[in-house]
């Protein structure tokens, strides 16, 4: 599959979901199970993405000290209630700094 196809398919898929939300009858949300499921899916996907991007390179697991330290710094920044962009800058800065040593 070509990267262009992935880019366009992602764009169309995401748009279809946004439009779907505006069009679907409101009744669906009345089911508490549906509400809970839809609430938890992003949690599962985001967590999995963090783990894989922190620890994996393709199909091999690797421990990149600088990258993990960068993520640790991000956690610290979040605990200190830093704004979104500050969290990102701190994470990248710590990783870059450690690689410079």
């Amino acid at each position: 599959m070509n990267v262009w196809i992935a880019v366009v398919a992602t764009g169309l898929g995401c748009y279809a979901l946004k439009l779907g939300g505006l069009v679907i009858p409101q009744r669906v949300l009345e089911d508490a199970r549906v509400r809970r499921f839809t609430d938890l899916v992003p949690v599962a996907l985001l967590s999995a993405l963090i783990a894989v991007q922190a620890l994996a390179d393709g199909r091999t697991l690797e421990f990149d000290g600088a990258r993990l330290a960068g993520l640790g710094a991000a956690v610290a920044a979040l605990l200190l209630r830093a704004p979104f962009l500050v969290v990102l800058v701190v994470a990248a800065g710590v990783a870059a700094g450690l690689r410079l040593l």
Binding site: K18, G20, G21, L22, L29, L45
Partner: peptide
């Protein structure tokens, strides 16, 4: 995966419609 992650926008739409 990317599209599935966009599923929460459908919920927002439901709420804002």
């Amino acid at each position: 995966g990317a599209v599935l992650l966009g599923g929460r926008n459908a919920l927002y739409g439901l709420r804002l419609a």
